[in-house]
Design a protein around this nucleic acid. Structure first.
Lengths: 111, 111
DNA sequence: TGCATTTATCGTATTTATACGATAAATTAT
DNA sequence: ATAATTTATCGTATAAATACGATAAATGCA
């Protein structure tokens, strides 16, 4: 195993990444879900339009309704958003708890 | 546009996601790169073995050398790591500056 | 009940990601 | 120069992601 001193090419420890098991999988899944520009735009739209319905997001984005539905499913399953049935429509919101969890994990493991 | 009160299904604003243009693309690229369990493991390995060479990571992971090299390229291009040529080998480290940038972006836009 | 509205799912086409073996490229040592 | 070591790249096979139209499912209303 090559072990060189930090001064040779590395900065001093910048993060611990101390996370494991279930939490790590959950975190990676959240990373994966948000690693897509369309889905990031959906999150931003939900900040500006909390409680809007799927159709509003479909109108906003330049992609088909079926595709939007798929993206919403990915974001839901990763925990970024939650959807509440409102009649035949579905009202979407950011999932504040999970987002807070994500932020806390990042601040913890990346310092 | 359906606009309902926050109380109906949404928590109070939990994040601004106030980011745009180049920064947003950079952030999404970092999300995408780390949204893979192998690449997350590589980062964790680099925390424990700063300055190790590609071969050490290859020995550690249960995948082929060519595949590891691809993953390292993804992490490099996203800014998570940096590699310094050390003779015929390449010494890898976490990219502290970019990681700090990521952490700061998250704390800023997710609160 | 029947119809309109809204969203999810199905089937499928295309693109991208992931993985591997083989080989090339770069460096060091002989 | 040759050989050994190390990593990157090429070509390619397979899996996963992304996209769409069509259709089903669920709900509310006439």
């Amino acid at each position: 195993m090559t072990e060189i001193t930090a001064s040779a090419c590395c900065s001093p420890t910048c993060c611990s990444l101390d996370i494991s098991g279930v939490d790590q999988e959950r975190l990676v899944a959240m990373f994966k879900a948000l690693g897509n520009p369309i889905r990031f735009e959906i999150l931003k739209f939900l900040v500006a339009h909390p409680g809007c319905i799927t159709g509003d997001i479909v109108d906003y984005l330049p992609i088909a309704q079926a595709t939007v539905s798929q993206h919403l499913k990915v974001l839901r399953e990763a925990g970024w958003i939650s959807g509440v049935t409102e009649g035949p429509a579905r009202c979407y919101c950011l999932n504040a708890e999970n987002i807070a969890w994500f932020r806390e994990q990042i601040t913890q493991i990346m310092s």
